[in-house]
Design a protein around this nucleic acid. Structure first.
Length: 316
DNA sequence: TGCAGTGTTGCTTC
DNA sequence: CGAAGCAACACTGC
């Protein structure tokens, strides 16, 4: 479940290894509604061959000039003022390497796929991700940037860089928590839009702040000594400040550790990040609280339909 | 074996 | 209007 630090890690990887390549071909096996391809203003399903053809025509021959991030979206900037947006949702990974198209001999899947893409060399890009490659960008150096996505929630969109479709895509998003302009004042004004909302839910609300999901919200609240059940209106000045400081600190820490691979996130080389080894709350149910001097035990509860992990002793 | 759990987003319902 | 519920999906673990 890529959140801000995982998406940022992927973007850094693309800038390191993929920028400068030209797109020579694209491929997909999507047949459901979920991988949407939008070209200009027309939203259509990639299963519509006409629109996949159009998407292909727009990107083949274009050069990848860089990647950036907005909220949990990866933006791949192309020459000719085109941008490919990839939202990895729950289980998506962008992977870079040498891939090979093979006829499916049923050893990988049960869903009657006629052909699949597998990593050329044994290594970290091998199973389990091979089975779930649903979108492939072939590059001029013969390598591939592929989207592996077990649950097929990921979204791929194409729009004109800086155009109205891009604006529409991002119009609902809250500020970037790591931007310079995001200060304590902005955090408080954003949080105050949901005075009755529970802090855990509000932190994950992409219209309030963009990029935070279940893992990082649990960790931010642990470090801020605040219960996930507290409502915004009850937060003191001091508590808001703690949330502000820890949001910046923990997201930056996630990036410097290469993201969180407790679930199945991998960077573009197929390698795991390390933030999962630093969790103090997320999925630590039953563990002794690691806060110095605290005698609590991490508890799992459900907040806003999501699992929340916290220490009921020092998080109040 | 069957079913709850996993989690983001956006749409629907209350 | 805001909050809650649910679908999209596929696999894991109990």
């Amino acid at each position: 479940m890529p959140e801000l630090p995982e998406v940022q890690t992927t973007v850094l990887g693309i800038n390191n290894k993929v920028t400068g390549q030209t797109i020579t071909d694209i491929w997909t096996d999507y047949t459901t509604n979920n991988l949407l391809v939008t070209t200009n203003n027309r939203k259509n399903q990639i299963k519509n061959p006409k629109f996949f053809k159009r998407f292909k025509k727009e990107v083949v021959g274009k050069k990848i000039i860089g990647a950036s991030r907005r909220a949990k979206n990866v933006l791949i900037h192309l020459s000719g003022d085109k941008t490919i947006l990839v939202h990895m949702k729950m289980t998506g990974h962008l992977l870079f390497g040498e891939y090979r198209r093979v006829t499916n001999d049923q050893q990988f899947t049960t869903n009657n796929k006629k052909e699949i893409w597998v990593a050329e060399e044994p290594g970290p890009l091998q199973d389990p991700f091979n089975r779930f490659v649903h979108f492939v960008i072939t590059l001029s150096n013969g390598k591939h940037l592929v989207l592996s996505d077990m649950r097929k929630f990921a979204k791929v969109t194409l729009f004109n860089t800086g155009g109205p479709d891009e604006a529409r895509e991002f119009s609902h998003l809250g500020p970037e928590p790591l931007s310079r302009s995001f200060d304590i004042k902005e955090l408080k004004s954003q949080l105050s839009k949901k005075p009755r909302g529970k802090i855990k839910t509000v932190l994950m609300d992409q219209t309030i702040i963009s990029g935070i999901g279940n893992i990082y919200s649990d960790e931010i609240l642990f470090s801020s000594n605040i219960s996930p059940l507290r409502t915004i209106a009850t937060l003191s000045e001091k508590e808001s400040k703690l949330i502000f400081i820890n949001t910046k600190k923990i997201l930056k820490r996630g990036i410097s550790l290469g993201g969180d691979s407790m679930s199945d996130y991998r960077n573009i080389d197929g390698l795991p990040g390390n933030f999962q080894n630093k969790h103090k709350a997320y999925r630590k149910t039953g563990s002794a609280c690691s806060k110095r001097g605290c005698v609590g035990k991490i508890k799992r509860i459900v907040v806003g339909g999501r699992s929340a992990h916290y220490c009921p002793v020092h998080q109040t």
